[in-house]
């Protein structure tokens, strides 16, 4: 439809428009942009080329995680930055070492502990402007010091919206691992042996286990380690699903029934077992968080299963025909 032939000058104009409009709060600038688009059909083609490059670069952090060759260059960038006011992300290997060196030190009695029970979530606004939403049955201790900020997720799940501060990194400790952030939004799960981090915004480094390198997670990715697994799975993820519980929903997109059972136990208390015959079931759907009986009923409507209760324990078994 649009001609793909445009001059270098048009390309440069398109770049200038793209950058100007990214955070533009002025309608008149948008109207000028409209005039520019309509002045020559090649302008739209040039603008689309800038957008395509922008989208293509989304995957650069994944490439750098997979092919760390370029990180030598980042190290020198960091060295140069030491004299300026720049901060920089450490390359994976160095980050792992650093995580070991600055392991969390909670002074006894310092820090504030927040807890939730089985019946409600809780929003904690921190003095630095960051926000933590605690899921049910969760315990988090927060320690804000002059030169660093730290939180320990003892159990459960929490969504962190961390305010960016140049001189005070925020470190979250959970499940024997550490998650280093700048300014970002992410969800951490540390429950009954399952560990997971989902990043909505920014970039997060998660320390490895047993001497493995730290993983760098860009926005839109998740790191998961199910109970008993020996390695992490990093995949693209829709952050909205992982954060859904913060507005009272559980969203599953092709998840194993075991993961759903863990959520049932977390929200309803007690233990929840899964009949081996159901292990292969994958769950896609939305469940509204409520009391255990409501949760069970929704799940029974969604899946060919039945939930049996016995002495405070629940068992997910195949539905009767």
């Amino acid at each position: 439809m649009t001609p793909t032939v445009y001059s270098d000058a048009m390309r440069d104009e398109a770049v200038a428009w793209f950058v100007r409009l990214q955070e533009c709060d002025d309608e008149t600038v948008w109207l000028e942009h409209q005039d520019w688009l309509e002045a020559d059909p090649a302008h739209a083609a040039a603008y689309s080329a800038v957008e395509r490059l922008w989208i293509e670069s989304d995957d650069l952090p994944q490439l750098e995680a997979a092919e760390p060759a370029a990180e030598v260059i980042e190290l020198s960038a960091r060295r140069a930055a030491r004299f300026g006011r720049y901060r920089y992300w450490l390359p994976a290997a160095a980050a792992a070492a650093m995580v070991g060196a600055v392991s969390l030190q909670f002074e006894r009695g310092s820090g504030e502990t927040y807890r939730t029970g089985a019946d409600a979530t809780r929003v904690v606004a921190l003095a630095d402007g960051s926000r933590i939403v605690l899921n049910r049955n969760t315990e988090v201790t927060v320690h804000l010091a002059r030169n660093r900020r730290a939180a320990e997720l003892a159990s459960g799940e929490a969504a962190f919206d961390i305010r960016h501060e140049a001189d005070r990194p925020f470190v979250v400790a959970a499940g024997g691992r550490e998650i280093r952030v700048l300014g970002t939004e992410f969800d951490v799960l540390n429950d009954a042996g399952a560990f997971g981090v989902t990043v909505r915004r920014g970039l997060v480094a998660v320390s490895g286990t047993g001497g493995t390198a730290a993983a760098r997670l860009p926005a839109g990715t998740a790191l998961l380690r199910p109970p008993g697994a020996r390695s992490d799975t990093v995949s693209r993820a829709n952050p909205d699903d992982a954060f859904a519980w913060t507005h009272g929903q559980l969203v599953y997109a092709d998840r194993p029934l075991d993961a759903v059972a863990r959520d049932l136990a977390r929200y309803g208390g007690g233990t929840v077992s899964v009949d081996p015959a159901l292990r292969d079931i994958r769950v896609t759907g939305v469940i509204r968080i409520g009391d255990p009986a409501t949760l069970d009923r929704q799940l029974e409507q969604l899946l060919p299963i039945r939930i049996e209760r016995h002495n405070g324990q629940r068992a997910i078994v195949p539905a009767r025909h």
Partner: peptide
Amino acid sequence: APVRQTFRLHKFEGLSHSEVAAEL
């Protein structure tokens, strides 16, 4: 380096233009 860092902070670490300005 300053151009590269600006690009990375904005594109990959999700900082707005004014947050990058404050950072650098």
